[in-house]
């Protein structure tokens, strides 16, 4: 009986002391926290944030994003141009830097926001893919920052990233994504990612 209790205690201890599982939604929460803390909270209104792009700094924990306006009134069919950008870090609730441009002009059509393949997905599926992309992005960012030789598993991961990004990124903003860090996109394409032509 005593041995059985010890066995149970050992299992519990092992469970408690194990390495905590990484949160897949961490990147999403970092963006959300950065928006409500200074400096972004004082200059960026409730605009939409883009998908993060790794900068390659700080051990792969730093990302760049840009902001654009999405209508918060149903029935409006415009889409704002990117008009602000920020650099965020995984370990901090704040943005390292944040700047706003001349204003988000509604010059694009909201119906063209996503690629035809993404339009066939439902909201739930899109959210799921976005969460998956966030998880993959964290790993990819570390790989990009380390600059070490890649294994076949890494290449599969990069390919997966390319697929997810092509699906979820807004086609009118592909040039803006490229401008965030052109070196990263070159590295991703060289290592097997299939990215949309920009």
């Amino acid at each position: 009986m005593r041995g059985y209790s010890l066995f149970l205690a050992a299992i519990l201890m092992a469970g408690a002391c194990g390495k905590p599982r990484a949160r897949e939604d961490l990147l999403r929460d970092v963006v959300a926290a950065a928006l409500v803390h200074p400096p972004c909270s004082q200059i960026i209104p409730s605009w939409s944030a883009s998908l993060p792009v790794p900068t390659g700094n700080r051990g792969g924990k730093e990302f760049s994003i840009f902001f654009f306006a999405v209508p918060d009134r149903e029935g409006d069919h415009w889409l704002g141009t990117p008009s602000g950008r920020a650099v965020i870090e995984l370990d901090s609730s704040s943005a390292r830097s944040c700047e706003r441009g001349a204003g988000s002009r509604p010059s694009l059509n909201l119906r063209d926001r996503f690629s035809p393949r993404a339009r066939s997905l439902g909201v739930e599926a899109m959210m799921g893919k976005e969460a998956e992309l966030d998880g993959v992005l964290e790993k990819i960012s570390r790989l990009y920052s380390d600059k070490r030789p890649l294994t076949s598993k890494d290449e599969i991961l990069i390919k997966r990233f390319g697929d997810l990004f092509s699906l979820l990124a807004e086609p009118p903003f592909w040039p803006n994504y490229r401008d965030l860090n052109p070196g990263f996109w070159r590295w991703a394409v060289q290592n097997g990612a299939t990215l949309p032509k920009q």
Binding site: L35, V70, D72, E74, G122, V123
Partner: peptide, 19 residues
């Protein structure tokens, strides 16, 4: 503060800040 796309179940407005 909410995501308009999720609240309206319309992916066009996903990640759109709304209150």
């Amino acid at each position: 503060a909410v995501d308009a796309g999720v609240l309206w179940n319309d992916k066009k407005y996903l990640n759109g800040g709304h209150v």
